[in-house]
Nucleic acid binder design. Structure first.
Length: 276
DNA sequence: AAGGACACCAACCGCTGGATA
DNA sequence: TTATCCAGCGGTTGGTGTCCT
């Protein structure tokens, strides 16, 4: 049994922002050798960087055809709709947007879109109105015997969280947040693997079909998008087209497992919290 | 003008599944 | 079969610029 050498000596490699000179070395290397075996890139390109760092720099910044300008309203709307369908699967979402990386999409979501949704009173995790989540919370609350309710819920009046001066901010108590996250467990999620459902289709034409929520349930997102002039199209289904053979089939079948796991974890957390 | 708060985003960290020896 | 590495991924951090008081 042989062992490979470590990819780099992390204590001696440079970290932090890349210089134009370093970028140029990567570009020259990739132009002459192509992409592959990133662990050898620092040595061959004359860089004092970890191979992993080189790969990230290339993927997120130097790769050709990457867009470096602001997200358009159309892109924002797509991100919102894909996120509602697949959650924080940034790489999957990014593949649907020409010239955007998963890092771009993730950053834009965390810095802009999540806040926009919250301002609109929409929960960025479930994409449901917070008012509905609170209503769901009330229903869950009714099912829980008084003696088993968590301490913080016993001692806090939920309505007090909305009597603050700034009522526009949808602040919730920890327990309300927990209850809100519970609704995710019952949220519908549709991934139809056409390859699995249609054995007649050729292997290279198989594609995963994600039923995105129709814009009628998304309400008025476009009001908050860049430019504010785009309307949501009534297009309930969008296809996730595979860029490589069978790739999305694997991604989405894994996705189903992830969601089940996530929902089970939430259930476990909820049961512990309510001392069932 | 100063400096604290906030927003943005490039880069890093740590985990996972598959590949490899 | 096992130990280890690699690539990919999502979460997090830290540097920098801008805004606000």
């Amino acid at each position: 049994m042989g062992r490979r050498p470590p990819c780099c000596d992390k204590s001696h490699v440079k970290k932090g922002p890349w210089t134009a000179e370093e970028d140029a070395k990567i570009l020259v290397y990739v132009a002459s050798h192509g992409i592959g075996n990133w662990t050898l890139v620092p040595q061959k390109a004359g860089l004092n960087r970890c191979g992993k760092s080189c790969r990230l720099r290339w993927t997120n910044y130097l790769r050709p055809n990457l867009k470096h300008d602001s997200f358009t309203s159309l892109e924002e709307e797509l991100i919102l709709r894909y996120h509602q369908a697949v959650g924080n699967r940034w790489s999957l979402i990014a593949k649907q947007l020409q010239g955007r990386t998963d890092n771009d999409v993730k950053n834009h979501w965390n810095t802009k879109l999540k806040k926009k949704l919250l301002k609109m009173g929409i929960d960025p995790i479930t994409h449901k109105p917070l008012s509905q989540l609170l209503s769901d919370y009330g229903n869950i609350n009714a099912l829980i015997p008084q003696s088993t309710r968590p301490l913080d819920q016993k001692h806090h009046d939920p309505s007090s969280y909305f009597s603050r001066a700034d009522s526009s901010l949808p602040t919730m108590s920890p327990f309300q947040e927990q209850a809100a996250s519970m609704s995710f467990m019952t949220a519908p999620f549709h991934v139809i693997n056409e390859a699995a459902s249609s054995s007649a289709s050729s292997s290279h034409e198989s594609k995963v079909h994600v039923n995105l929520p129709s814009s009628s349930t998304i309400t008025i997102w476009s009001d908050y998008l860049v430019g504010d002039q785009q309307e949501c199209t009534n297009e309930p289904d969008i296809e996730f087209l595979p860029t490589e053979g069978g790739e999305y089939m694997n991604s989405c079948s894994r996705l189903g497992v992830d969601l089940t796991k996530q929902r089970l974890l939430l259930l476990l957390r909820f049961l512990l919290l309510t001392q069932f």
